[in-house]
């Protein structure tokens, strides 16, 4: 009798790795089991079980069997629900979706269920599929994931003196302490980045807004640039390195200018 337990869940493909002659090791983010890694036997040759199902950001109902979490799961099959074809046929959207996957992969441990993380990734992929690409979508995903992962940046007042936001003061973002700091307080981060009050308020608004209204929130060029700088700096500080997908995204943006 097999000691493997059969499981079925909704899953989004984060990444794949070629293994042996024809197998793939696939990392999924699932609704029921969090991040899992499994082997899809013969997936690179199979014309039936896995065709088009194991591409990054494909969303499927997957069947897998598990011996225990220390072993690779065994992927039995996938029923694709969404391919996100609009994302795949647009370079900017593909790059942003890849960044979403990279962030989820970096901020989530294996085998820890987080329905909020799954829903966030799913909702933002759907938004990206339907809406025009914008800086706001990218930065609001970063902000919301930081909150779920326990790194919610303090934006509603100075992280040091606790005074609420005040138009008469200047602000910087202190990545070491994880929030904005006013001009009257000394930051712990030597590289604290100046940020305007308008940008902070835009991010605050976007953090709380209902997902279906996010498309209406427009960032000014200044807010987009400041958000890019403070959030990428903060994420790099938390992870200790720059994300590969962000480096490629910036490289391609430079090339097209």
């Amino acid at each position: 009798m097999s000691s493997r337990i059969p499981c079925r869940t909704e899953a989004i493909v984060l990444k794949t790795l070629d293994y042996g002659e024809s197998d793939l090791i696939v990392t999924f983010y699932t609704r029921e089991y969090g991040k899992i890694r499994g082997i899809a036997k013969g997936a690179r040759r199979s014309k039936k079980r896995f065709v088009n199902a194991l591409e990054p950001f494909s969303c499927s109902a997957i069947n897998f069997s598990r011996k225990n979490p220390d072993h690779l799961d065994f992927i039995e099959g996938c029923d694709v629900a969404f391919h996100f074809q609009e994302i795949r046929s647009d370079l900017e959207k593909t790059l942003i979706a890849s960044y979403f996957l990279d962030l989820i992969d970096q901020f989530t441990p294996e085998h820890k269920k987080s329905e909020a993380s799954f829903q966030l990734l799913y909702d933002f992929l759907v938004l990206l599929e339907k809406k025009k690409t914008s800086a706001s979508l990218l930065h609001l995903f970063e902000l919301r994931l930081l909150r779920i992962a326990g790194y919610d940046p303090v934006l509603d007042g100075c992280i040091s003196c606790r005074q609420p936001l005040n138009a008469g003061r200047g602000y910087r973002f202190d990545s070491v302490r994880g929030g904005v700091i006013c001009s009257g307080c000394k930051p712990s981060d030597a590289d604290a980045i100046p940020v305007s009050l308008g940008t902070v308020k835009t991010l605050l608004m976007g953090k709380e807004m209902e997902i279906e209204n996010l498309g209406r929130l427009l960032f000014t060029a200044q807010a987009a640039e400041e958000s890019r700088r403070i959030l990428s700096h903060f994420i790099r500080h938390i992870l200790g390195h720059e994300l590969k997908s962000l480096r490629v995204l910036n490289e391609i943006n430079r090339l097209q200018r």
């Binding site: 990054p56 790059l95 890849s98 990279d102 590969k244 997908s245 480096r247 490629v248 391609i252």
Partner: peptide, 11 residues
């Protein structure tokens, strides 16, 4: 080919 998750860009 371009593969953002592997850090492979056009360069």
């Amino acid at each position: 080919v371009i593969s953002p998750l592997d850090g492979i860009g056009p360069d």
